[in-house]
């Protein structure tokens, strides 16, 4: 009756099952989102929800899942390289506005860290969690790097980054309707700074220019924070 008897434990099934389930659910989720455009139906929310339900049903752990599906996450590397193309195609806009974007990234990054620190303190979260929450506005590889540098737990940070992405993409869309933003520059920066890669994907739905600005802002934020991390670590350890 149970799947175990059907040879579910065999390595070949394990290697194929989770990636197939991930891609299958993702394609379904994308169809659903194309039909009903609701923020809670975003593929980034629906796909993990279905997968988590399935994994809990089958009693699978994270390592079981990752054994077969880790290569899907590796594709984020080439996807980062791919951001060179929209940035190249919008190089004129960027050349004209790089100072403004850099200032936005500086302000955004500081706000991210200060707000996470303050809220975590107010709610009485432990020091470990608080440190792991600080870099959550960056894209995953940067965030994990910074988290390790400042003494947080990189695997926890990865989860917080994802939650930020899922809700950030939705919140960002809402914010765009509330804030009186005139420039595509500001719309792209809002999504790229607030929700990293997921925000950049959302920005691409809104417009070409928004998409490339969001991608650039995401990369800028990551670079700036990685460079600032040693100084930040020094400050957090009571150096100042």
């Amino acid at each position: 009756m149970s799947l175990v008897n059907l040879g579910f434990d065999s390595p070949i099934v394990l290697a194929l099952f989770w990636p197939a389930a991930t891609i299958g659910f993702y394609l379904c989720a994308r169809k659903i989102y194309a039909r009903w455009r609701r923020w809670y139906l975003s593929p980034l929310a629906v796909t993990p929800a279905l997968l988590l339900a399935l994994a809990i049903l089958l009693g699978a752990r994270y390592v079981d899942y990752m054994r077969g599906a880790h290569w899907i996450m590796l594709a984020l590397g080439p996807a980062t390289v791919a951001f060179a193309i929209p940035i190249y195609e919008k190089r004129e806009t960027i050349r004209r506005n790089w100072r403004v974007l850099l200032l936005g990234v500086l302000i955004g990054s500081s706000t991210a860290m200060v707000s996470a620190w303050a809220m975590a303190s107010v709610l009485g979260l432990s020091g470990d969690l608080r440190l792991s929450l600080l870099p959550r506005s960056m894209s995953t590889p940067f965030a994990m790097e910074v988290s390790g540098d400042i003494g947080g737990a990189p695997d926890l940070t990865a989860i917080f980054v994802m939650v930020t992405g899922i809700f950030g993409a939705a919140l960002g869309e809402l914010m765009l309707t509330l804030l009186p933003l005139r420039s595509s520059l500001a719309r792209g920066a809002l999504l790229g700074m607030g929700a990293h890669g997921a925000g950049a994907a959302k920005a691409r739905e809104i417009g070409q220019e928004e998409g490339s600005i969001a991608g650039l802002v995401m990369v800028l934020a990551g670079l700036l924070n990685v460079l600032a991390a040693p100084i930040l670590a020094y400050g957090l350890k009571g150096g100042f």
């Binding site: 403004v100 706000t111 709610l123 979260l125 804030l179 920066a189």
Partner: peptide, 26 residues
Amino acid sequence: KLLVVILTGTLCVMASTALTVDLCAR
């Protein structure tokens, strides 16, 4: 609690970034 930290933080980040960029661009 974690969700509250992330949501309020993200709102602050988005508002501060977008307003900075928009005001500077104007």
